[in-house]
Structure formats: C-alpha cells, structure tokens
Amino acid sequence: MGLINTVLPFTSSLISLIFAGIVLARYSQRRGTHLLLWGIGMIFYGIGGFCEGYYGTWGWNPLVFRLWYLFGAMLVAAWLGQGTIYLLFKKRWANVLMAVLVLASVYGTIRIIGAQLDPDLMTSSLHTGSEMSGHAIISPGVRTLTPFFNIYGTLALVGGAAYSVYIFWRKKVLLHRTIGNVLIAVGALLPAFGGTFSRMGIPGALYISELLGAVILFLGFLRAVTPLGNGEEDTEPGV
C-alpha cells in the first residue's frame, strides 16, 4: 500500500501539471477561455494529487487536507466542466454560469477553511485511513456541497465531450476530435468511479483511478488537437 499512497498520487500530480502547462501554453497562443479553464482545472487536479502523495509520505497535515478537499474533491470537476461550457455554449450564458461557479467556489473555500477536522474519522466505515477522505470533516454541511460541484462538472465535462462525439460522428468529420472526446469522457469518469469504489472499501481504487484518469484525459486532449493526417483539415473552432 505504501507505493500506492505515494508514487501513484505524485505521478498523477506530475502528469496533471504537465498537461496544465501544455494547455495553458496553447491558451497563450490561441486564446479561448475554455483552454484557460481547462488549464486551471488541471492545476487543481495536480494540487489534489500532490496533497494525496504528501499525506501518504509525511502523514496528516490540516492545511494539506483542506487544500486536497478544496481543489481535489470539490472544485476540479466543476472547473474542468466550465471550460467545456465555454466551448459549447454562447458566451453570455457561459459567463453567467462562470459567475455562479466563482461565487460557489468562494463559499466552498470559506466553509472548508473554517471546517473542524478529525483525522481519526478517516478510518470510519469502510475507509482504511490510508487514502484521504472527506470523513475527516466534522462541521456539518461542508461535505454536502461537494456533490453539487461534481454533478455540474460531470454533466458539463463528460456530457459536453459526449455531445461533441455525437456531433462530429453525425457529420462524419474530424475523426481525431471524435476519438479525443471519447478519451476525454472516459478519463473524466474514472476518478468518479474511483471515489465510489473507495467508499466501498477497495484499497487504492481512488488513486489508481485518478492516475488513469489524468493519463487518459491527457491522451484525449492530444488526440483531439492532432489531426489524423488523412487530408482532412481541422477547420472547426474549439480545442
């Protein structure tokens, strides 16, 4: 379990941050709010992984736990999903949803900063205590916020990728973007499954799924921005 709780999350963090750098570099060249938000989202993913690796290596630290819960558990899916919202929706609606997300994120941050913690509770129910878990939060109403962010993020990111797959498939164009979005949808879903398996007491499920998720998201993005070389020009706006 030692390697699973240290090497896996640190590797996941490294991959996420490299991915974030590439996306943000692309943003600096092409602009596009979706690229900026995906880059920010992957930084959050990287922070979450780093905190998990820190816990596995050096043990409990309340600041590290708060950073993990805020960025890794609460915000990452919603901010990645918000990038997809900017890609697929009219800017006015995307801006409205962005304002709501920012306000909700500020509220979530305040609640997490002020939350009472008990690390012993991470071994409650089926959790082994070797992985980080929101069970350490005692204050009521904090953990209840997270599913709202995750519902929004899942619908936006996975739903948006699936919608893109459908549109490109229907038009029979840009196969590389279709394949890329298939990978993005799968990669985005894996951490959600990992969290579910973790709650069922399957050791290592969360960290393994997060690493696989980061890798597959990265591959999906690279596939989506790299034409297949079959002569088809990538003239569609977006990624």
């Binding site: 929101g134 953990r143 519902i151 899942t154 699936a162 879903l189 973790s198």
Partner: peptide, 24 residues
C-alpha cells in the same frame, strides 16, 4: 453507455445530497 453512466453518477450524487449514501 456514457449517457447511462452519467445518469447513474448524477443519481448517486443526489443520493449523497439526500443522505441516502455516504459522501466523500
């Protein structure tokens, strides 16, 4: 499959919100 999975995950998240299932 992805549509079914997304609906399942959203249902699971709603179950967590309503307290039927333990949250993260």
């Amino acid at each position: 499959v992805i549509t079914l999975v997304v609906f399942g995950l959203v249902a699971l998240a709603l179950a967590v919100i309503m307290g039927v299932f333990p949250g993260s």
